[in-house]
Amino acid sequence: MDFLRPASWEEALAAKAEHPTAVPIAGGTDIMVEINFDQRRPDVLLDLNRIGELQEWETGEETVRLGASVPYTRIMENLRAELPGLALASHTVASPQIRNRGGVGGNLGTASPAGDAHPALLAAGAVVEVASVRGTRLIPIDDFYTGVKRNALAPDELIRAVHIKKADGPQQFSKVGTRNAMVIAVCAFGLALHPETRTVRTGIGSAAPTPVRARPAEEFLAAALDEGGFWDNGKLIPPAVARQFAELVSGSASPIDDVRGSASYRRHALGVMARRTLGWTWDEYRGNERTIRCA
């Protein structure tokens, strides 16, 4: 096994080009467990900790460019206003110790359907910035997950950052685990309201071979909100709409039975989380509207 310690991003890309099988290591949450338990012996480990810019973020006019290694703790503490969905998801990641080291680059690189960041990234409509010596690509999150623990990265590419639009409306994230802390998702759900475009986006975790959106649910809800003039009148969403939304979310999943939960429970729980997060986001939207109107 080789251990490469590039001091700059350019060196890292050169190393990855030279050793396409090299496994990048940043927070170590996934890869170190596999090494400790003899499940994986990569030829080359590529340490990304020395590349400072991976741990930084830039807040632009419309978008946050979030370095791949910005620890979840920093996201929770510093980006709650800009990226509320991801901040909530970050708070549910494993333990404080792991949140101090892990970042979205690891979730994306591993591309496990159980990664906590995925539903929030899907709901926010993030774009993944990947790079190689050949250049930089921007991959929409919708195209990023290609299979079970597979993603759209080429062998010589590394994840540089994620571009996420600053929230233009309320976002929520909810995750079911069988413990009240430090737990891997049985299933998870992210929801973002986008009042500017009058759309909603969703993300489902741990309930399909890859993280997925519940597109039929999004389309249904957007249409229902539009038709009822809800964006403007800020009225309560009728329970029937919430129910239908929940059912469509549930129906968008293709879960399996495993040690963490049954497929039918996952479907059920997704529906509950969809209904609740819709309630929370819509309450917040209405509250904001009221505040604005009062002001």
Binding site: L88, S174, V176, R179, N180
Partner: peptide, 12 residues
């Protein structure tokens, strides 16, 4: 119930 995972704010 659910703790940090933010599953309920009192519902259910």
């Amino acid at each position: 119930p659910g703790g940090l995972s933010n599953t309920t704010h009192g519902e259910g």
